[in-house]
Amino acid sequence: MKVGIVLSKTPTYSETFFLSKIRGLQKHGFVVSLYVQKEDVSFKLCNVVQAPRFYRKNKFLQILAIFQVIFRLLPFLIRLQNFIKLERKVDRSWHQILKNIYNNAHILTAELDWLHFGFATMALQSEHVAQVIDAKMAVSLRGFDIDVYALQHPNCYSLLWKQVDKVHSISNYLLDKAKLLGLSNEISYSIIRPAVDLLKFNPVNRVLSEPINFLTVGRLHWIKGLIYTLEALAILKVKGVKFNYTIIGSGPDYEPIVFAISQLGLTKEVRLLGKKTHKDTLGYFTISDIYIQYSISEGFCNAVLEAQGMGCLCVVSDGGALPENVIHRQTGWVVPKRNPKLLANALQEVILLPEDVKGEYRKNATKRVIEAFSLDLQQKTFREFYN
């Protein structure tokens, strides 16, 4: 079976979700190709087909690229005609149609059984490609697609929902929200959650230190709820709790977060480390006591999975799919979002628990990660997805 996966760029070493999926399919005889806008030449895991480039600052190169696309599509005139007909049926302008032909030229020549868009946003303006190349169409639902982009662009997926053959979601939360956005209950779907490479994890059953070491990994973005987290920690500081808080990640909200740290009097307690490699990040899990993910919403959150796998006690919000990731009072603690006082109370409760009770939480969390979020299980469910 031939599967084409559409992404913006080739996966990096840390993007285990896509890498393990590709390896698992290849191991069982699937032929996998990636269709990307940006290609890293060091990526050798499977065949990569790059989209035509845009040369905004060089008209000569742009004209040359247009002619290359024309020659590439000449043997596929019937497909091209069918694509134009389908685009005209939904009243797309000729300008948009020509743009869509150019952007999708690398896929319009493909011979595939499945065309799988790794993000719902990647399928926009490409909704007719799978039908034209006589392939089934799949799409993956992720947090940004459903929680953020769909709010900024109402009804953006209305055509996609009509064309898709099967949906992959990383959580029940995202699937349910997609249905609220118009996805039909009749469309086939599979919930295939993120997975972790268990060989990289060595759970540490530690005794809480003083000061307590808190950790969060994620973009510096409003949806991660970092301001609420800082406000909760300021409450703990007033109560006399000694702690250090490390935030790993970069993003657009760096300045508001730095300002909040200063205003809340947490300059000595909080460290913003910026972006770190996956290997370095795993190292911080081993020296952290409590992992906090107090996001407003999450599609699932790999970092929380990794934190549990590494033996951190996890306190998360009830935003999005986080309650599917952490089972309240079994593998961690789930706190209503946007409420720093409740978060502060929950963190203090965790700190004061007897060490044997903390150990049980760690044991439960690690056991669940091993049983429910292994790469082998993920690979198996993806094979079943296409079959």
Rank of each mutant, 00 (worst) to 15 (best):
A135T: 04
A135W: 03
A135P: 03
K136F: 09
K136C: 04
K136I: 06
K136Y: 12
M137F: 09
M137E: 09
A138Q: 10
A138Y: 09
V139L: 05
V139F: 07
V139D: 07
V139P: 10
S140P: 07
S140D: 09
S140N: 13
S140E: 09
S140V: 08
S140M: 05
L141T: 08
L141C: 13
R142W: 08
R142Y: 10
R142K: 06
R142C: 03
R142F: 06
R142M: 05
G143N: 00
G143H: 00
G143E: 01
F144N: 13
F144L: 12
F144D: 08
F144H: 13
D145V: 06
D145F: 07
D145G: 06
D145Y: 03
I146P: 03
I146Y: 04
D147I: 05
D147Y: 08
D147S: 06
D147C: 09
D147H: 10
V148C: 11
V148A: 13
V148Q: 12
V148R: 10
V148L: 14
V148M: 08
Y149S: 11
Y149M: 11
Y149V: 05
A150S: 15
A150T: 03
A150C: 11
A150L: 08
L151E: 14
L151G: 09
L151V: 13
L151R: 14
Q152Y: 13
Q152W: 11
H153V: 11
H153L: 07
P154L: 02
P154N: 06
P154S: 04
P154W: 01
N155C: 11
N155G: 12
C156A: 15
C156F: 07
Y157I: 00
Y157Q: 00
S158T: 11
S158C: 04
S158Y: 00
S158F: 01
L159I: 15
L159V: 14
L159P: 04
L159M: 14
L159T: 14
L160H: 02
L160V: 07
L160Q: 02
L160M: 03
L160G: 04
W161Y: 04
W161R: 01
W161K: 01
K162C: 02
K162E: 06
Q163I: 01
Q163M: 08
V164P: 03
V164T: 05
V164Q: 00
D165C: 02
D165I: 03
K166T: 13
K166F: 06
K166I: 15
K166Q: 13
V167T: 12
V167R: 11
V167G: 11
V167S: 10
H168S: 08
H168T: 09
H168R: 10
S169P: 04
I170P: 00
I170T: 05
I170M: 09
I170Q: 02
S171E: 08
S171C: 10
S171T: 04
S171N: 10
S171W: 12
S171R: 12
N172A: 15
N172C: 15
N172M: 14
N172I: 14
N172E: 15
N172G: 14
Y173R: 10
Y173D: 14
Y173A: 15
Y173L: 09
L174N: 06
L174H: 04
L174C: 09
L174I: 04
